[in-house]
């Protein structure tokens, strides 16, 4: 009896978490699958009913915005992750050195991590608006960078970099701190210069951290809706609409739950691929 009670302890401890996850994460995923086969639009309740694969047919064969959003999602994630990896690695290497004021420098460069997507939008609108922004100091006084097809992509990428690089740097800094200092000393004794120490000591040890940070951040940028929703609203001409942003707009603005759910299923397929990759890699990391 006593041993039965003791065996029940861990299950009791995790039960609230399991219940919450089941009710508000697992069940909703199941219901998305169900809705995706339905006509369901809050603004047109009389037309609700079973739709079969109609939503998917519309999505795959008639909805150009779906394919366009997939294309932009890929472009967005690749650009963001590539630049965040480069800048984040550089930043992590810099603040890993010892110098006076390092603690303060770290807090300052990491601080945008705590800023929300909406607040980032608010701040960068002030910077980008013609006449009031900072671009007039760079000789571009009249360009509305967010409304122009040529400039909107670099503008949103830079904005997200401001908020995204710190987290990448934090993840990589944690990896850097796990490298034993003796390795650098040994390499220096062997006559390895700065560049060779970086290539042969730092990079190999940082590999796992880089792979996992890249993967985590890719998923995060894929899912990132707040910033684009408020900064560009997916425009101009829908060129900055990612798939999750498209889903959110369907849910929030047009209340078309059936079709939005079909779009969500497409997103899940992509995320599932990333999750499996992540699980494989994180288990791979544990064994070593």
């Amino acid at each position: 009896m006593a041993s039965l009670r003791r065996r029940a302890v861990p299950y009791l401890l995790i039960s609230p978490t399991v219940a919450l996850i089941a009710a508000f994460l697992v069940y909703p995923i199941g219901s998305v699958a169900y809705y995706s086969l339905q006509n369901r639009n809050l603004t047109r309740p009389w037309a609700d009913g079973f739709a079969g694969l109609e939503n998917f047919r519309r999505m795959l064969f008639e909805d150009e915005l779906f394919w366009q959003s997939l294309g932009f999602t890929a472009k967005w994630v690749v650009a963001e992750i590539g630049l965040q990896l480069l800048l984040g690695l550089a930043l992590a290497l810099i603040v890993n050195e010892s110098f006076i004021g390092r603690g303060l420098a770290r807090s300052l460069v990491f601080s945008p991590w705590a800023v929300s997507g909406v607040l980032t939008t608010g701040i960068w609108i002030l910077l980008y608006t013609p006449g009031t922004g900072v671009l007039r100091f760079l000789g571009q006084p009249e360009t509305a960078v967010l409304g122009n097809l040529d400039t909107v992509f670099p503008a949103v990428v830079v904005t997200e970099l401001w908020r995204g690089v710190p987290f990448f740097a934090i993840l990589l800094l944690a990896g850097l701190q796990g490298i034993p200092g003796e390795l650098y000393e040994a390499a220096a004794v062997d006559g390895a210069g700065r560049v060779r120490r970086f290539r042969h000591v730092t990079l190999p040890h940082l590999r796992d951290a880089i792979v996992l940070a890249t993967l985590l951040r890719s998923v995060w940028e894929f899912n990132n809706v707040d910033l684009l929703y408020t900064l560009t609203g997916g425009g101009p001409a829908q060129v900055t609409t990612t798939l999750p942003l498209y889903v959110a707009q369907r849910a929030i603005d047009s209340k078309d739950f059936g079709y939005g759910s079909a779009l969500t299923m497409a997103g899940f397929v992509i995320l599932l691929f990333f999750s499996l990759l992540y699980l494989r890699l994180s288990r791979f990391g544990e064994e070593r």
């Binding site: 995923i29 219901s31 998305v32 899912n223 999750p244 942003l245 889903v247 959110a248 939005g260 995320l271």
Partner: peptide
């Protein structure tokens, strides 16, 4: 990995 943005509909 599950984005809140994708679950807006069922959660609502």
């Amino acid at each position: 990995f599950i984005p809140g943005a994708m679950l807006l509909i069922p959660l609502f």
